[in-house]
Design a protein around this nucleic acid. Structure first.
Lengths: 254, 254
DNA sequence: CGCTTCTTTGATTCAACTCAATGGATGTGG
DNA sequence: CCACATCCATTGAGTTGAATCAAAGAAGCG
């Protein structure tokens, strides 16, 4: 199904950044009221996307960035053997699509993990108003920069941490993102499967399952299917970089 | 040593983008002659940085992006145990420092792998002229976007490839970057150590050494210390995604 | 030219993967 | 509402690719 098939044209629904409770997390952050008004003219809403439906696919023509309003999505690329590699999960207030700016084609696919809604940020128009609103240009640079920094952290997690540390790090990362959104940092639902967690972190589903259950046995978390509660945040934090300091220099350079 | 200690103030040396042979690879790409003139007023040169000296360190105040003019650098972050994780290697025409835009502090450190020179691109001024030169703003977005895409590819390499495939992929990546620079794609010098290659790819130095020698035994490459020659590019390409297609779905989702 | 750093090579170990089988949840259609 | 199918998660046993440990050789440096 194509987004233009709909009877009601949701893309015409003007979204109001100024009344959006995500504005301090999202693109509008730091903009004056006057500049917000200009931005709102560019942003469009959309109808909800159901679980398993694609927001965009690799090689699709790029014409817009997307901000998650509700729900969650995963982005993934495909390797030479057609296998999926998940490169990120996105939650409300987070923006995706930046990777397509260079080639004007999406370099990854994005699919809803649950019923989700989005704001569309048509890139050409965004580009234009960035020239007129210095704070907006700056915010764009900052968002791109932040994405780079968080990819660097992920690289570190995957390259230097054990399976146990990776999963703990992942759970903590979700926790702090939900906290920022005003949800509980202690209790949340995993919108992705064990398979997807493993894929993202470079682990098999069996390893993910075993370790989540080990954390539960140790009283660090309680997990029931998708529902997770962090029982001992400090302990989980400690697991994130458990490996003892001095002896550990397996990949270290200089 | 601080960059202001020098007798001759190299930072005053105006660099000429318009006569630079890297202009089509670097920030000026796609700019008109008139816009190039404006950009040149912002860009500053610098004295050479010798091997092992830092261009910037983590937490340094961010005030400038850097373009490599000659030589090469590595960027790295430090984990909780003080261990280094290399996040990228940069060659002439490539720009680094983007990760610091968000927090205004460098989130990684960068050090010269050999004697290298750079152009300084003071960010505040760059920001300002981006507002006046739409093509430049666009080029900035594109460079940031490209950096994201290449990090995604790295993630895929590290998460889904064997040690052998990672190293082959790394050698091919260097080859194509050197080719773009107009150097030989078949023959080049590794400016980084085995240790640094391993660190970057999530492997130990022993594994890197063994596999490079295996490639040599198989006649795919010739390697003598830092000097590498690709004897059979097709074979090396084939190694990059050697693992057979159908059976391989260890981390795959959906 | 002695010292340090980098690289190579071999033997052994182990964390995470693979293979295998079962269990629980959700959904569908008769 | 039950029977069946499917999908996802769990758990166990055995295997393996890359790490670790160890030691020696080569190169570069002061």
């Amino acid at each position: 199904m194509n987004k233009h098939d709909q009877v009601i044209d949701f893309s015409r629904i003007k979204t109001s950044c100024s009344s959006c409770n995500l504005q301090e997390l999202c693109l509008p952050r730091g903009l004056s009221e006057k500049d917000l008004d200009k931005l709102e003219l560019v942003v469009k809403g959309s109808k909800p996307l159901h679980k398993g439906h694609h927001l965009f696919r690799i090689n699709d023509k790029f014409d817009s960035l997307y901000a998650v309003r509700s729900g969650s999505v995963k982005s993934y690329i495909i390797d030479e053997h057609g296998e999926e590699q998940i490169i990120g999960f996105y939650f409300p207030g987070e923006i995706l699509g930046f990777d397509a700016i260079d080639s004007k084609q999406h370099t990854c696919s994005s699919v809803a993990l649950e019923t989700s809604t989005f704001c569309y940020l048509p890139f050409e128009r965004l580009n234009e108003i960035c020239l007129k609103i210095p704070d907006l240009q700056n915010q764009m640079f900052r968002l791109l920069s932040r994405e780079l920094t968080s990819e660097n952290k992920l690289l570190l997690t995957i390259n230097r941490k054990t399976a146990e540390e990776r999963i703990a790090t992942f759970l903590i990362s979700l926790s702090s993102r939900f906290k920022i959104l005003g949800y509980s940092a202690r209790e949340y639902n995993l919108s992705m499967s064990r398979q997807e967690i493993g894929n993202y972190l470079g682990l098999t589903i069996e390893t993910v399952s075993r370790l989540l259950n080990r954390f539960q046995s140790n009283g660090v978390i309680t997990i029931n299917r998708k529902a997770i509660r962090i029982e001992n945040l400090a302990a989980l934090q400690a697991i994130c970089d458990k490996t003892l300091s001095n002896q550990n220099n397996k990949h270290s350079a200089a």
